[in-house]
Amino acid sequence: MNIEQLDTPAAIVDIAKMQHNIDAMQVRMNALGVRFRPHVKTTKCLDVVRAQIAAGAQGITVSTLKEAEQFFATGITDVLYAVGMVPAKLPRAMALKQRGCDLKIIVDNVTAASAIVEFCKTANITFEVWLEIDTDGHRSGLSPDDDALLAIARVLRDGGIDVGGVMTHAGSSYELNDPEALAALAEQERAGCVRAAQRLRADGIACKTVSVGSTPTALAAKHLEGVTEVRAGVYVFFDLVMANVGACATSDIALSVLTSVIGHQPEKGWVIVDAGWMAMSRDRGTSKQARDYGYGLACALDGTPLEGCALIGANQEHGIIAVEHADDLARRFPLGMKLRILPNHACATGAQYPEYRALASDGSTLTWPRFHGW
Rank of each mutant, 00 (worst) to 15 (best):
L224D: 01
L200R: 00
E225I: 14
A218P: 06
S214L: 01
V210C: 00
E229G: 00
A249T: 12
R231Q: 14
A221Y: 03
T209W: 15
L219P: 03
V227G: 04
T217D: 07
T250V: 14
T228L: 09
L224W: 08
C248S: 10
F237D: 07
V230G: 08
T228V: 12
V236T: 14
T209H: 15
A243S: 12
V230Y: 11
D203E: 15
L200A: 02
G213L: 03
C248E: 06
F237K: 05
R231T: 15
T217S: 08
A220P: 06
A220K: 00
E229M: 11
D203N: 11
V210W: 00
V241K: 07
E229F: 02
K208D: 15
R231M: 13
T250L: 10
T250H: 13
S251D: 15
L240T: 07
I253H: 02
V227K: 10
T217M: 08
S251T: 13
C207S: 08
I253T: 03
P216C: 07
A249Y: 12
V241E: 00
R201S: 11
R231N: 13
V236F: 12
E229H: 08
G226L: 09
G233Y: 03
V236Q: 12
I205M: 04
D239Q: 10
E225N: 14
H223V: 10
K208V: 15
A221N: 01
